[in-house]
Structure formats: structure tokens, C-alpha cells
Design a protein around this nucleic acid. Structure first.
Lengths: 250, 250
DNA sequence: TCTCAACCTTGACATAGATCAAATCACATG
DNA sequence: CATGTGATTTGATCTATGTCAAGGTTGAGA
């Protein structure tokens, strides 16, 4: 397994007053809640490529991504796989009120999770409405992005899919780094070609070919396998089939 | 626009003590909450084919589906469309905390909504944690089904997509009617070929051809355009590519 | 520096599903 | 009962993407 060192990132979502440091679960940082969360939390690290939970496994924790990327995938009996979730730092993993995982959870890069034992977390949710409210917001956001993703899977061409994914990653990367607009974007592709193909509902060969095409056309510049530079974000965005408004940091 | 008369259904989710009669928003039927809900609710009816809200429109209500089917769709600039949500009786429509709709909302059949003015509904949610909790549960369920749908869009063949959709509709129809297992399933297809193609990420011609193929193979029986009978549910389910456990009423 | 294994790229060919074009059906209306 | 219109079916063809197969790169570790 190739490793991608998790970059310590400059999290804008970070909650500086809070030892857990993730607004994901600590929306207002009230001290009694923090104390309760402290008591039930623990960290876990994973190497790139490792499977964290298999679909159907018992899962007795929920978690917040600290660094790295986790993916959720579904598998059909004959082995066809589709990624259905990509979790970046501060995203929430796990479903309160469910015993077993419905998805395979994988570490796409080296990964650190901040886990909370599920039972006490759920009890705390009942006592502390704003945690549930925050979770509802996050779940609604995830539902929105799942629906964008459905449009991509159902209606976009291979080229549009690749352009969309590059824009999505660039955007999230930029927002994590709080880069100024206008600057050419340069980042590490955190996914293998295979992971990209699982994200996009394509084969790995098609992914590779489309990336080559975009490179030849000058829409992207690559160094090595993973370093990507986007000289003109808006031009790439036009290839993605998305409405072109709502720019890089929208 | 062809009309499909909304069947008054025997809702198992119906909450008989409650004038709103939808557990969707009235989880425990406590009387003071009911009174508050009564004060902000109103009904709206739509004909099959009507657009309820356009993507980007202001939407100052949330709602619960009473009878009929509503769909959520996304549209690309060049007109390609993908359905991203299908709401059946007791499902919830609208996103608390958002001013405008992100999707086109359409009536797939004749439709009755029980609407609640958004502002007071949101205020009530803050005062009444269990409504938020119930909404979180429903949103998590929707997220799960969106993810199943992503697998369908990304990895299933046209034949598997059609079989899946028929099973989904049959299952939901059966659960609404509380039919016994074993009986052959007979129901009205509540979607046009075009709506099915938008659901499945296919063209309408491919949908039609696959349905014809399944008919010729005896997996389904059709009368007219919309009446469908599934003589052997499990056999159809095998064609859907889904894990075959979790039978009709699972 | 060399080697190896994992990852990626490219080519040739096959095919599922899209596209374009005609029927045909079936129901509401006169 | 005839008619017209939108929905559906079916056919012929095209093409984007999948499949199979062979090389090429890259980077970690010896």
C-alpha cells in the first residue's frame, strides 16, 4: 500500500477552545458537554488502503475525521463497487441508532479518527439537543452532496465526471488551506485511479485516459502521478457540466 | 398530462390520534405540539405532471406527503435531468434552514401535501427536540436510500436498474397495503417511462425496451401501460443485482 | 544504484446503451 | 364513434465506454 502522509491541515472548521477541536460534534463548546465527550473519546490511526469496517460489521463507535480521507463504499455480490461517501477532516462517520455498518469504510489516505463510544454518545445526544441539531445540519448537507453525486453518476460523461471530481477536490483542498482566489491550484490527488473510478462509476482505464486528455489539452498539469495543478479553475469547471457560478470558494 | 387518481391508501404510518395524521412530523402526538402544528398547517393539491417548485425558487414551507408521489430532480444547463428524490406518502419535503429549493419538485401523480409554514415550524423544532430527532432519523434514512441509488446509477446495467425500480415500487406499494407475502403483486406504475428514465439515468427508449424484455421473459405481466403484476417477486429481485436476502417486507 | 511491485498508461477491439426515426397505442374530447 | 395528441414501442445505426492485454513509471527498500 502506498502511503500518502496526512498533511497536518489548517482546519477552518477547527474549534480552538475545544480539546476535541471538531465542530462536527462540539457545536458550542459548552464545558459540561466537553467533559462528557472527553470521557468517551479515543483516537485511532489507519494507514492508506486499510479497511476500517466491513459492510455488515458491528460498529460501536461514531467518529469525526481529524486528518486524511475516509471513503464509504457499497459492493455487489459479483464485486462491482461504488463509492458512496468521501469523508474529509471534520466530517462525521457513523450512524447513531444503527448497530452495524451499511458500507465498507476505508482509509483512502493515512487517516486519524476521533472516535466516540456509540452508546454514551447517543445518550448524550438525547440530553443535548444542539448536538442532534448540528448532526441534522451535517446530514442534510451530506444528502445534498449525495444528490449532486447522483446527477454526476446518472447523467455526466466521463470527461465531465473527471472534471467535476478534480474541481471538488480542488475546492475542498483550497477551503482547507484558505488560499486566495486567482492563484493556480496545486494539490496532491488523494485518491488512486482505482478509487477515482469507484467514485465516478467508471473503469480505472477510462479515468486514466480522460486525465491524459485533459493534460494534453492543458486544462490540468501533472507532476508524477498525484501532483496536480489547475492553471485555470473556471475553465476546468466549464468542462464539469456544473453551473459555472458559485466560484472556487462559494 | 395523464392523471393517475391518487389512491386513498391505508397508511400504516398514519397516526390515528393526530389530526395531522403523519408521524413524519408528529412523532409522539403530544397535544400542545399538535395545537401548534394545527395553527401553521395547510393543505395543497397538485395534478400529475405539475411543477411545485423550481430549483432556486423561494420555498417558505416544509411539507409531508399525504397522498401521491412527489419527485425531486436536478437539471443541467443543456437539459439533461436526473431525479434525486422520490417522496411517497408520509415522506418529508423541504429543508429546514434553507431559503430556496435546490431541486425542481414535481408531482409525479396527483398529489396532496400537508404544508407547514417554515418559520414557525423551525421555531417549533427548536422548542421540541423530538421533532428534530425524528427529522434526523428520516434524513439518515433518506441518505441511506440515496446511497443505494448511487450504486444503482454508477454500477448497475439497464436491466438491473429496471428490475430494481420495479422491486422498490412493489415493496413500497406492498408496505402501504400491508399485503401478505406470497401473493402475486399487482400495482399501478406511478411513473411515466420518462420519469423512470430520469430516476434510472437511462433514456426512455432503453427503459421501454427493457420492460418489454422482462415481459417477454415472463418476469412481469403488464396490462395497459401502467398496470404491472409481478408473479414471482424473488425471481425479479434476483435480476436487480441486490443481495437477495431481506425479502418483500424486510 | 538496482530491483520489484504496485500503480498507471496506452492500444485494439467489443458492446451496452444512446440517438434518430417510424410506427402504434390508448385515452380524452368532440 | 371518430379523431387527435401525447405516451409508448420498435427498428436501425452510432458511439462512448468497457474489456482484455501489453508496456511503462515510480518510489521504497535492499
Amino acid at each position: 500500500m502506498t502511503r500518502v502522509t496526512p498533511q497536518p491541515r489548517n482546519l477552518p472548521q477547527e474549534c480552538s477552545d475545544c480539546p476535541i477541536r471538531h465542530k462536527a460534534v462540539c457545536a458550542r463548546c459548552e464545558s459540561d458537554e466537553l467533559e462528557q465527550l472527553e470521557a468517551i473519546k479515543y483516537y485511532r490511526s489507519f494507514e492508506a488502503g486499510q479497511t476500517i469496517v466491513w459492510s455488515g460489521d458491528r460498529m460501536d463507535f461514531v467518529a469525526s475525521v481529524v486528518t486524511g480521507i475516509a471513503t464509504l463504499s457499497q459492493t455487489m455480490e459479483d464485486g462491482r463497487r461504488q463509492m458512496v461517501g468521501m469523508l474529509l477532516p471534520s466530517d462525521f462517520l457513523g450512524r447513531p441508532g444503527r448497530e452495524t455498518s451499511s458500507y465498507d469504510v476505508n482509509a483512502a489516505t493515512d487517516l486519524v479518527l476521533c472516535c466516540f463510544r456509540k452508546k454514551p454518545f447517543e445518550e448524550m445526544m438525547l440530553r443535548t439537543p444542539h448536538i442532534g441539531q448540528r448532526l441534522l445540519e451535517m446530514t442534510l448537507d451530506e444528502l445534498d452532496s449525495a444528490r449532486e453525486w447522483m446527477l454526476l453518476l446518472g447523467r455526466k460523461t466521463a470527461r465531465e465526471k473527471i472534471a467535476s471530481l478534480l474541481c471538488i477536490i480542488a475546492r475542498r483542498d483550497a477551503s482547507l488551506h484558505l488560499r486566495g482566489p486567482g492563484a493556480p491550484l496545486r494539490f496532491d490527488l488523494p485518491l488512486t485511479r482505482e478509487a477515482m473510478s469507484e467514485y465516478l462509476g467508471l473503469t480505472l482505464e477510462t479515468v486514466s485516459r480522460q486525465i491524459s486528455t485533459l493534460r494534453k489539452e492543458g486544462l490540468i498539469v501533472t507532476e508524477g502521478k498525484r501532483q496536480v495543478t489547475i492553471p485555470d479553475f473556471d475553465r476546468l469547471l466549464e468542462e464539469s457540466g456544473d453551473d459555472s457560478d458559485g466560484g472556487l470558494l462559494g
